[in-house]
């Protein structure tokens, strides 16, 4: 896998003295969809801002496509399209003009056919001659995406792209993101919707209080998520797990009244039946049972709260 963005020892301290990022090391792979998750104020926007040149880094280096973002900012920035978190748009320009402006700003000659395609993809074509201020919030969000795509970037940053976008349009947006990925664009997105990350991302990074606390393949995370737990509330307290049951992954909790069985649904399909049979044979009875499955959200909450 080729690295397209590499962030090395990046720290950011704002003028207020706040340390928004602490020694971040992160590699983004070419062509992947990378989801950056983290609670409010974790530093997601700051990180994106630094990579894109809007915020000055305090320490560390960043390379985009091998180009240093400061020494060789032009080459780095040609590659990047940014959709900011805030809905900041011109008010008085038309949709068409403001998107064409972005293309020029990023050093590309006018290409009406491309602008038309982008506007159509984002269902903004019908509004191309409207003034920006007459658009709804969701349309403005899509306009920002259109601006970011106007110069055909190789890397696209989406800082909470689905905030304030309705369900149907969200589906369209994800379709667009998929087709961008298919054309080789690397996509880095932040979101507060974990199901979105789950659905879209190839890899997931979690940032909390300015530190990256986890970067993992989504498939790997999902494997961890695929694990389920069966809790048996026993009739009688058990001191230790009988040796005959040692082949199961069992744990005693709550002073011996709860027996917890952890299993992988995909792998041990027959596990529960066998376990229950063996328990009965061993004379262990239970009065109630329940199963739980951890979600990405649980992992996320645990990770983040562990740090508090």
């Amino acid at each position: 896998m080729q690295t397209v963005i590499s962030v090395t020892n990046l720290s950011k301290t704002y003028a207020s003295g706040l340390r928004a990022l602490k020694n971040i090391n992160l590699d983004i792979r070419r062509g992947e969809i990378f989801a950056l998750l983290g609670p409010n104020g974790a530093g997601k926007t700051t990180l994106i801002g630094i990579i894109c040149g809007i915020v000055n880094p305090s320490e560390g280096t960043i390379r985009v496509g091998g180009h240093d973002i400061i020494g060789d900012y032009r080459a780095a920035r040609y590659m990047i399209g940014l959709v900011p978190q805030e809905l900041t748009t011109d008010a008085f320009e038309t949709v068409w003009n403001t998107v064409s402006f972005s293309r020029g700003l990023f050093g590309k000659p006018a290409d009406p056919a491309h602008i038309e395609k982008v506007l159509r993809d984002l269902s903004l074509w019908a509004r191309k001659d409207s003034k920006v201020m007459t658009l709804s919030g969701g349309m403005k969000r899509r306009l920002l995406i259109a601006k970011a795509l106007s110069h055909e970037p190789r890397i696209l940053f989406l800082d909470e792209p689905t905030a304030g976008v309705d369900v149907e349009l969200r589906q369209d947006m994800w379709k667009l993101v998929r087709s961008l990925q298919a054309s080789g664009v690397t996509i880095i997105l932040t979101t507060h919707y974990i199901d979105e990350a789950e659905e879209m991302a190839d890899r997931i990074g979690v940032i909390s209080k300015g530190e990256i606390i986890l970067v993992e393949e989504k498939a790997e995370l999902m494997r961890k998520l695929g694990r389920k737990q069966l809790t048996l509330h026993l009739e009688k307290t058990l001191v230790r797990i009988p040796t005959g049951l040692s082949s199961y992954s069992l744990e005693l909790k709550s002073g011996g009244t709860d027996l917890i069985y952890t299993y992988d649904e995909q792998v041990d399909r027959a596990g529960i039946t066998a376990l229950l049979r063996d328990l009965a044979a061993a004379g262990i009875h239970f009065k109630d049972l329940q199963t739980t499955q951890s979600s990405l959200e649980d992992i996320f909450v645990t990770l983040v709260s562990d740090r508090k």
Binding site: G53, Y73, Y78, L82, P84, T88, D90, L105, F106
Partner: peptide, 14 residues
Amino acid sequence: FVGTIYELLSAPVS
């Protein structure tokens, strides 16, 4: 004031 400066700052312009 309105924040659209983000685009200028992120653009490959000197």
